[in-house]
Write a protein that binds this DNA or RNA. Sequence first.
DNA 1: CGCTTAATTGACACCAGTCAATACCCGTGG
DNA 2: CCACGGGTATTGACTGGTGTCAATTAAGCG
Lengths: 280, 280
Amino acid sequence: MEHQVAATGIWAERHAAPICTISRRASIGVSCALPLGKSMLCGNASHREGRAPDSEIITGGASSHDVWFIRSGILRLQRYGYDGRRHILSLFLPGEIVGFEGEFRKGVGVETVTQSGLCRINRRMFDTMLNDNDELRAEIFRQKQDQLDRLHWLTWSLGALSPEERYCAFLALSTRYMPYQTVSDGSAVLTMQLPRVDIADLLGTTVETLCRINRKLSEAGVIEIKDPTHFRIPDLHRLTSLGRIDGTFDRMVRGITERRHCLDRMVAATSKISTCFCGR
Amino acid sequence: MEHQVAATGIWAERHAAPICTISRRASIGVSCALPLGKSMLCGNASHREGRAPDSEIITGGASSHDVWFIRSGILRLQRYGYDGRRHILSLFLPGEIVGFEGEFRKGVGVETVTQSGLCRINRRMFDTMLNDNDELRAEIFRQKQDQLDRLHWLTWSLGALSPEERYCAFLALSTRYMPYQTVSDGSAVLTMQLPRVDIADLLGTTVETLCRINRKLSEAGVIEIKDPTHFRIPDLHRLTSLGRIDGTFDRMVRGITERRHCLDRMVAATSKISTCFCGR
DNA sequence: CGCTTAATTGACACCAGTCAATACCCGTGG
DNA sequence: CCACGGGTATTGACTGGTGTCAATTAAGCG
């Protein structure tokens, strides 16, 4: 089970040479590295859970006893609008901690998008850790900040940008948390891990519109569609420009990439790691 | 000058018997009642300024030496989008303090919408007051909270609601900070103090669309158009329902109405008032 | 009264959503 | 190996809402 989780997780695929081919199962045996005094929570596999796509992690309206650490995969924070249509409010990425707030409002919930590897952490335990560990507290704070920023951009973009612009921004940002492999000519190929429906609900549009935009972008030479989940991006800057995030791109992805590098270091090391939440 | 300010300010008109007729000039001689130790800042008229509509209060990009207290009138926080179009991010209402943050980003600014009566407060003085006065600190905090909530709703609504829904919500909310006078049959007439352009830029739509919505609403019996700035509202609940703020209306207007009542008490009293920022 | 500005209305275009049909991918079972 | 089925992605036809442009009307003010 855990093998499969690792296979679809982001770092596993990132290191694979040919697209979509799994060459290493890098996250096996890696500790979650949530430090709790001298012991390592999730250091053993007993707290680990592999989750299939679309499985509920947190259900709104009921208080949850657990906090989750994302080892691999992508989660979505969603709610249902008054018209019964689903909105994806934000994504949660590897290295992030979810469910810290204890309870979501009814109708709001967290589910997996892709196959995911999670660590379940008891809330009482987590609170204790939070108390003892300054690094962890600081990291939680940074994560909240990042998540709030993403949420803010997303809500803003719904009003200020067109679906096409939002999609371009989304694609550009995706290169930082989805497999993105450089090919011969210097450009790179992005592996889109979200199905169309999720992208549509995230960007407040429909799958059909996304298809049309995809085609339009490929005709304009902004992207090249290898297959429905693989896009070659000749010029990333062109995308950020179309997505109106020229100036903010680096700032927006800073947290994401740093958490990712942090997890990469964990993957690289074979021994236990003393702390995951490296200072910035 | 100050007379005219008072005449178009919100409380002056609220007390007038026939619509748009000025029967009292209630705010004359009223202290701003910003307490600073035993002395009353703005107790004398020297810090007061009457401002015509569309005059700049705070210009983004330059640090301002002043903080402003709104005695009457409505201000707008605005910025210009990448396409050169103006967005109104939020409104500031009587009783609120503006410019506390010191400096806005370039392109962002605060201007008057209606004729306004303001108090100019020196920043150093204001900081001192903030230091000495717990009540004031608490009030600033509450105001920030309220403004953030409004901003959040607005950005959200741009993505989640149609222009018609947004306009309905806006109308409903307007009854709490614009003149709203009960007539014989129990319904009431709202005096719209914002010109169409400002409403359009606030709600992210155009004046033409607003006109059409207005007509549509009047044909549906939701409102009755007495003239371009006066609408009779037979059923306020109908509006909140159309604006999707059924459940949140009371919570959204709480801060606004309380600050208004607070100012009303100031108006009612003839002597100096010791404190404006009443606890809640 | 005439000027200026704001508000309204109409004609039109276009983007994006909806519905329906088709193509494609992939796993299963014969 | 191929046929089939289920799900996903794509495409086309159509519709409606909303922005744009232009013309008209109304309101405010000297």
